[in-house]
Design a binder for these strands. Sequence first.
DNA 1: CTACTATTGCAACTTGAATGTTTTTACGGC
DNA 2: GCCGTAAAAACATTCAAGTTGCAATAGTAG
Lengths: 154, 154
Amino acid sequence: MPASRNRKNADDFRDQIRAKGLRATAPRIAVLQALEKLEKPATHADLAADLSAEGWDRATVYRNLVDLTEAGFVARVDMGDHLWRFELKAKKSREDSSEHPHFLCSTCGEVECLPKDAVRVTASSRAPRALKRNDVQIQITGRCDRCGTAPVRQ
Amino acid sequence: MPASRNRKNADDFRDQIRAKGLRATAPRIAVLQALEKLEKPATHADLAADLSAEGWDRATVYRNLVDLTEAGFVARVDMGDHLWRFELKAKKSREDSSEHPHFLCSTCGEVECLPKDAVRVTASSRAPRALKRNDVQIQITGRCDRCGTAPVRQ
DNA sequence: CTACTATTGCAACTTGAATGTTTTTACGGC
DNA sequence: GCCGTAAAAACATTCAAGTTGCAATAGTAG
């Protein structure tokens, strides 16, 4: 990464944040930069740990995750293990409400992003309209390959 | 319901519980009977409220839900709203690990059971094996029809 | 540069879930 | 039917993720 990349990035984020009517504060930019490094959704605890090492407060990180979620920069998902996870939304998907599905290992807790077409919904006529429009989040739980093939915890 | 139904039912449950090597205690039977009345998964809080009215302890209800889950009578699912929900597994599905998918309204929190074929998984070659085997739980979040068509909370 | 208000930092609180300990109870054997 | 033993119940208590209240600080519009 060129030396100027980080700075350029921060300026980018600053502009985008302000375009949404929010103040471009240092912790907010730090949160977006932390999210940018991730390959898969991270818990608030993960992000708070990262960012408190840089001196930012847990509650500030948390509130920013929520604010940035509301502003559409971030997706906040519950993968089914009672932890909120956050991921930066791709620019192209900020208007498109349907995100890719996620896979959570019921044994080790590892998370994986699945391709958007991994799951096809064949909604019957009685299904919720949102399902027919594909305007939903899909979450799949099972055993990952590393954890073997025994039955899913129920 | 005939007057004898409740009694007959309790005896049924008693036998089934003992067949799994567990003691057929009064609270356990009460838990199964409470679950039997449900049409959709209920939270621990719901069930505890019901059952504490009959004099059973919250923690006892909770531990029994977990025990009965481990014994295969009950499915414990996280619908994506940070609450565990429990439902009685149909007898036929007790061996079959793939349950029906659930739909959670991101606005009002209502839960709906979807037919087993509402979702088709088209796993790519890189997807987890469990997904290819269909040995997974599927959870869908969106707006229910009553809550309208605005975008999903992210 | 100033004033105004959003946001931060810190501590405290809430709530669902889980656990520790003592007492009670189911149930196999006598 | 009664007994002994281990399982389960009851009760309080703890735990952890998430959330909020409030005084101090700092972006930003004018």
